[in-house]
Design a protein around this nucleic acid. Structure first.
Lengths: 184, 184
DNA sequence: TCAGACATGTAACAAGTTACATGATTAC
DNA sequence: GTAATCATGTAACTTGTTACATGTCTGA
């Protein structure tokens, strides 16, 4: 149940239309909560019905015409309550770790190439985050908002760093393995 | 599309019934791919229909009576193909990072307590993994299977370590913050 | 015999994904 | 006027979650 809260956060930062939100989810917000435009439109509808947001008054908001939303007090209250709510961390779901386990059973054919490909992707992502860090969080700026947003970015950076480390470790290990598939 | 492959892996390691699988998902496999018994039964049905697994011959497998499955050659082939297939990493979805970003907008009320709670949970999980590591991967054992399964566990350990580090960092930062909510 | 554990399953729903449909605006 | 882009939306489907229903087996 986090998508509505992601949208509320984004709209509080800046009232936007569905497509603008989609674009912002492709960038910053989507770095830790991704969503497609279909999900976003569906959720905007629900949030509006629930009275948490409203469409900004505009000419005639028909199909094809831009419709921007802003957060209502009830929406801000809902988000505020959610920030401190007890909610257990969801168990990890990593297809890559799963594939490694499967490889232990049926042999690693092809997995090394995949690992190398993922390594490159994570390195790219890390580079992107580090660029954002340099640009948006130079030493010195330290308002409360800045620090918290910097923490979020640090999370992304450290996660990518973890993956790069693990994949490197995995590749090292697998290179030392005999070529034949692991038999039971 | 990983649940079927998680099940195939588990069944190759050891033919099992639905409930046994559920138990194994609560432990080892579920550490990186969780599933409830309802998901598992549904998926077992599909895999059987697809001819990838079959029920082991048994008395009369009616409702309420144990029904064990084993993997057929087609199932092993499917899993083998999947291990090396190109499949991009899924974007991260972290409610905790999202809550931090929301806190930057509506203020951090309650978030610190949540962070402390999560910190404790992650520390517990890490301790559990480290116990498993000691028990199952003592220095010396180094078959190909062992090494790959050890890598998977290392992934879990390093991920928990990442979270512990990040949350600690976050708590440090937030303790230095002024008490008032972050205004826009 | 009946309580409790074991075991499989249904149903309804929520969330996420994929493909496509429709209308408005702009630039040529 | 028509192609490209902007913008909102529907529909169908898959995956994951929650609550509950049903049958079997074991031991007190």
């Amino acid at each position: 149940m986090s998508l509505p809260h992601a949208i509320l956060t984004a709209l509080l930062e800046k009232p936007s239309s569905g497509l603008e939100l989609t674009r912002r989810f492709d960038k910053s917000i989507g770095y830790f909560w991704s969503a497609t435009h279909q999900q976003i439109y569906r959720e905007l509808g629900k949030l509006e019905d629930a009275g948490l947001i409203r469409a900004l008054p505009s000419p005639q908001p028909t199909r094809g015409q831009r419709k921007a939303y802003e957060v209502l007090p009830a929406g801000r209250a809902e988000l505020t309550a959610w920030v401190g709510k007890e909610e257990d961390p969801k168990p990890i779901r990593s297809a890559l770790l799963l594939r490694m386990r499967a490889a232990a059973v049926v042999g690693p054919q092809g997995l090394q190439a995949e690992l190398r490909r993922h390594l490159a992707l994570h390195q790219e992502q890390l580079a992107e985050y580090e660029q954002i860090e340099e640009r948006d969080f130079p030493a010195g700026r330290d308002g409360a908002q800045d620090r918290m947003r910097h923490l979020v970015l640090r999370g992304g950076i450290e996660l990518e760093t973890f993956w790069i480390g693990w994949i490197t470790e995995a590749l090292d290990t697998m290179e030392q393995l005999p070529k034949s598939p692991a038999g039971d």
